[in-house]
């Protein structure tokens, strides 16, 4: 009995230090860090004793990502998680720079759940918008040639008509 408890405590105390590109340090439980497939592989081969550098991710982004990982390592009810995810994304969506960095980082760290969540959120931002509105929101230059635009109208013209 006693040995089991100490073992559990050891498990609990297994912490790992992550260092962001701007040298900010984060100490998290191993199971939280494991949400990232990349960090998991690093921990498996190099152990958790020395700090793990996450060179391509800045401190503020890493902080936000670890917040997500921690929430998702608790195993809470699905409705609770969905609500939390929505709030998390609503916040991220407001700052496109942050959103962009978050997407790159989640992709780089290989956190599949978060990558999917960001993709769905991004698709949601495109829904029910005209091409001009989309260009404005994401500051995209219209580089389509006249021929290309004509081609779009011949194949997809139906989609631009009101229902």
């Amino acid at each position: 009995m006693a040995t089991i408890i100490t073992k559990e405590q050891q498990e609990k105390e297994k912490m790992v230090t992550l260092v962001s590109s701007d040298s900010e340090k984060f100490v998290v439980e191993q199971k939280v860090a494991e949400k990232s497939h990349v960090i998991k592989m690093v921990m498996n081969c190099c152990g958790i004793e020395s700090p793990i550098p996450v060179r391509r991710v800045k401190g503020d982004i890493l902080k936000s990502i670890l917040e997500y990982c921690e929430k998702h390592s608790k195993g809470e009810a699905q409705e609770v998680m969905e609500k939390w995810d929505k709030e998390y994304m609503d916040k991220a969506e407001k700052d496109l720079v942050f959103f962009h960095d978050l997407m790159l980082a989640s992709h780089f760290l290989h956190i599949q759940e978060l990558v999917d969540l960001i993709a769905v959120t991004f698709a949601g931002m495109l829904k029910m918008k005209s091409p001009e509105e989309i260009r404005q929101k994401f500051n995209i230059n219209n580089d389509l040639t006249k021929e290309q635009e004509e081609h779009i109208m011949t194949t997809f013209g139906w989609a631009f008509q009101p229902i």
Binding site: P131, I134, R135, I140, D143, I152, F156, A159
Partner: peptide, 12 residues
């Protein structure tokens, strides 16, 4: 499909 068509008219 409809949103896809609109997205296609944004850029190359």
């Amino acid at each position: 499909l409809k949103d896809l068509c609109k997205a296609s008219a944004t850029c190359k």
